[in-house]
């Protein structure tokens, strides 16, 4: 069976796995954002907590992915939950560190002027600092997403969903004539998903960044 034949026959299956994969990525990214953005803001505002927060986020990124997936199995059992937990932690560092860097890059003059006009700390954060830091933060989110899309393929090794299962199937049926197709299909699917998500980020960039700072 040629690769094209495989693709036409398994189109449905690949699409389903791709959606599973995407789901895994989006849920993990959502959790990472909900946790990472506030952590980044705290790290920016509190010099004392900055290094502990960044080191902790960096610590997770240093751990081998298989180890991080595995550690949650005793807690959550096999399946999507341990994968989501691990991927969320992986996604943390780029989000947190870019939030810190983005907020630090906001011009002190703009901050001082906003303060001098009587904005409260919260108004300043919401209306001035976060919008101005947003391009850098968005880059962090984009990097995180790319990392998570790739690593999510490993989730299959610990019984998780997504395109990794197709690669794993191929690996286990090694020697079989269809094995390469499965591996190519899974790998290609991940790459396509990564490219699509990257394109989505370009669009989000266009839509969410003020013309004044583009």
């Amino acid at each position: 069976m040629t690769f094209t034949e495989y693709l036409t026959r398994n189109y449905d299956n690949l699409l389903e796995l791709g959606l599973e994969h995407l789901n895994l990525v989006l849920v993990s990214m959502g959790i990472a954002l909900v946790v990472g953005l506030p952590l980044g803001i705290v790290a920016h505002r509190n010099g004392f907590l900055r290094n502990p927060i960044l080191s902790t986020a960096g610590f997770f990124l240093t751990l081998p992915s298989l180890a991080l997936f595995a550690i949650f199995i005793p807690v959550f059992g096999i399946g999507a939950p341990p994968a989501i937990a691990a991927l969320s932690l992986y996604a943390l560092l780029p989000i947190v560190s870019n939030t810190v860097a983005g907020l630090a890059s906001v011009s002190p003059a703009v901050v001082k002027a906003s303060q001098g006009m009587g904005m409260t700390g919260f108004q300043r954060l919401l209306r001035v600092e976060l919008p101005l830091a947003w391009p850098v933060i968005l880059t962090g989110i984009r990097v995180s997403t790319q990392v998570v899309v790739g690593i999510a393929a490993i989730a299959a090794l610990v019984g998780g969903p997504g395109l990794g299962t197709e690669i794993f199937r191929g690996l286990r049926s090694q020697g079989n004539a269809s094995a390469p197709n499965l591996v190519y299909g899974g790998t290609l699917g991940v790459i396509v998903l990564a490219l699509l998500l990257d394109a989505a980020f370009l669009l989000i960039r266009r839509l969410t960044i003020s013309r004044g700072i583009r």
Binding site: S107, V110, A113, M117, G118, M119, R127
Partner: peptide, 22 residues
């Protein structure tokens, strides 16, 4: 202080205009 500042005009050398606002 925030209330106070809303009633004091403030101009600085670097202008501090918000770049993302018109």
């Amino acid at each position: 202080p925030d209330e106070l500042r809303r009633h004091i005009g403030y101009v600085i050398q670097e202008t501090g205009l918000l770049p993302h606002r018109t």
